[in-house]
Design a protein around this nucleic acid. Structure first.
Length: 169
RNA sequence: ACAGCAGGCCGCCUUAUCGUCCCGAACUUGCUUCGGGAAGGAAAGUCCGGACACCAUAGGGAAGCAUAGCGGCUAACGGCCGUCGUCCCGAACUCGUUUCGGGAUAGGACAAGUGCAACAGAAAGAAUGUACAGGUAAUGCUGUAGUGAAAUCAGGUAAACUCUAUGCGGUGAAAUGCCACGUAAACCUGUGCUCGAGGGUACCCGCCCGAUGCAGGAGGGUAGGCAGAUUGAGCGUGCGGGCAACCGUACGCCUAGAUAAAUGAUAAGGUACCGAACUAGCUUCGGUAACAGAACCCGGCUUAUAGGCCUGCUUUUUUU
RNA sequence: CGGGAUGUAGCGCAGCCUGGUAGCGUACACGUCUGGGGGGCGUGGGGUCGCAAGUUCAAAUCUUGUCAUCCCGA
C-alpha cells in the first residue's frame, strides 16, 4: 500500500473517529507507525458482526449437528463444518436452558460469546479459500467471567486455523 | 426522634473505546458517512376481560362453564370505588351485644325434590325415651338436667347434587390476506358424484359449501418474504364535575419493533448499602449492585423484588 | 404461544370422586429360625399429606390462590 493511503487510513481511524484519543507519537511522524504494527493491525481488522454473518437457517444447523466435527475447550464447545457457496463464515451461539433457567443469564452469556467471537474472528481470515459454519455451545453451569470465555474462544479458533492450514498442504 | 402498620412513588449514575437493530438524509451506491431512536414495574405467571381477524354476520335445542346483598365506574370484566349486613380486633363511656376507629367477607334459595351428619347420645329427620319437677281422664303433654357443632323448629348443610336470576356461538397472530419457490393435476387401495362421500372445531336440528372430490398407505417437496405490527379505550400538565373509582375539556408530546430473535461488551471514576480495621473520621481496605428481558396490542389480577423517598395512623421517650 | 397432568414415610405408589381411622410395597431398627451369610417369619420407629387462605363442628379429601416438577402440539 502507498504511504499516502496509510496516512489517510490512520487519520480516519484515529483522529476523525475518536477525537479524544491523543497519540503524540503518531502526530510527530506518521512514518513511525510501523513500530506500532500491532496497534495498527487491530484498527485495520474488521471487527464487525452484522446479520449477514449470523447462522440462521434451521436446515444447516441440523446438518451441522449431524455431520459437523467438534472441538472443545471448557467451557465452550465448537461445532464446525466446511461449506461451499457461502460468502463469509457463519456463526451461531447457544446456551442450554437446562443449565441457565433465567432468560437474563442466558442472554448475557450469549452476548459475551458473541463479543469474544467478534473480537477474534480475524484469526480465521488467515485461511484463504475455506469457509465454515460454526456453532458455539456454552457447557458450563455457572456464569463465566469474560476473560475465561475469550481464552477458550482464541484457543478454539487457533486450533481450527492450524488444522485447516495443514490440510491445505 | 425511634418503632410498627397501611397506601403510593423511584428503582444506580457519568465518561471513553469497540459493536447490534430500526428510522431519516446525503452522495462517491458502500450493507459507506452523518443525524435521531432502542425493555419493565412487573416485559414474568398466562388467571380473567376486551380490541382485531376468520368461520352462516352466527339461528333453535340440549348440555356445559362462569358470576351471585345493593348501587356506581368501565369498551368489558371474575377488576375497581362506595355502601348495607355478618364476623374479628382495639378504644371510650352513659356498660348497652351502645358509640368511634381498623381489618376480613364466594353474602341468592334448604316455604320443590334427592342426599349427608364420625364419636357421643334414648333419639340426627317418619325415631322415640332416662332422672327430677309440673300437668292430665290418659299419653314425652311441658320444663330442666344430660350427649353433641346441631335436639322438634317452616331444624342444619348448596366452596353436597340441585333450583333461581344473569351472562357466554366457536377458533386464536401458528388468526387472516398477498407474493415467491418446489416436486406432482404423480403412484397404490377404498369410497363417492345430485337417490351425494365429505366438510364448515365437541352433540342434535337447521342452514351453507361440495366433485380434477374425500379417506388411508408408502415415499417426497417446501418450511422464504411482505402486510397484520406499533398513533393508541395513548402519555403528560392545567382547569372543571364527582365522597370515590372515574369522567369532561384545553394545550403540549410521538415514546422499542426484533424474528436462531437487536437494545450489548470491556475499562475507569462516582453513588448507595453491607462487613472489617483503627487514628473514630461522613477515614482506610474489602465485598455487593434487587427482581428480572418486549415477541399482535390494550384493561385488570397474581407472584418476584437489594436499597431509597413521600403521606397517613398508632405506641413509647425527650424537650418547649 | 397454546393444551394437559402430578406433588402423601428415604424411594415407588394407594386413599381424594362420596369430608371424621393416613395405608401398601421396599428400605431402616430389633427379635427369631441358621454354625455364619442370604432368605423366611414376627415386632417396631419414621408423615408440616408442596405452600397459603377460606367453607365446615371437623379438610390429605371441598373451594380459591400460589409454588415446583413433568408431558404433549407447532
Amino acid at each position: 500500500m502507498p504511504r499516502e493511503e496509510w496516512q489517510t487510513l490512520i487519520r480516519k481511524t484515529i483522529f476523525t473517529k475518536n477525537n479524544n484519543l491523543y497519540f503524540p507519537f503518531f502526530q510527530r511522524d506518521l512514518a513511525s507507525a510501523k513500530f506500532c504494527g500491532v496497534f495498527l493491525y487491530i484498527y485495520t481488522v474488521n471487527q464487525k458482526f452484522p446479520k449477514k454473518e449470523k447462522l440462521k437457517s434451521a436446515k444447516t444447523i441440523e446438518n451441522l449437528f449431524l455431520e459437523g466435527k467438534t472441538h472443545s475447550k471448557f467451557p465452550v464447545k465448537l461445532f464446525f463444518l466446511q461449506k461451499e457457496n457461502i460468502e463469509t463464515n457463519l456463526a451461531a451461539f447457544a446456551v442450554p436452558k437446562r443449565n441457565f433457567k433465567s432468560a437474563v443469564d442466558r442472554n448475557r452469556v450469549k452476548r459475551q460469546l458473541r463479543e469474544a467471537y467478534r473480537l477474534n474472528k480475524h484469526i480465521l481470515e488467515e485461511i484463504r479459500g475455506k469457509k465454515f459454519v460454526m456453532l458455539f455451545l456454552f457447557m458450563g453451569k455457572v456464569k463465566p467471567h469474560y476473560i475465561q470465555l475469550e481464552e477458550a474462544m482464541v484457543k478454539l479458533l487457533k486450533k481450527l486455523r492450524d488444522e485447516m492450514s495443514q490440510d491445505k498442504d
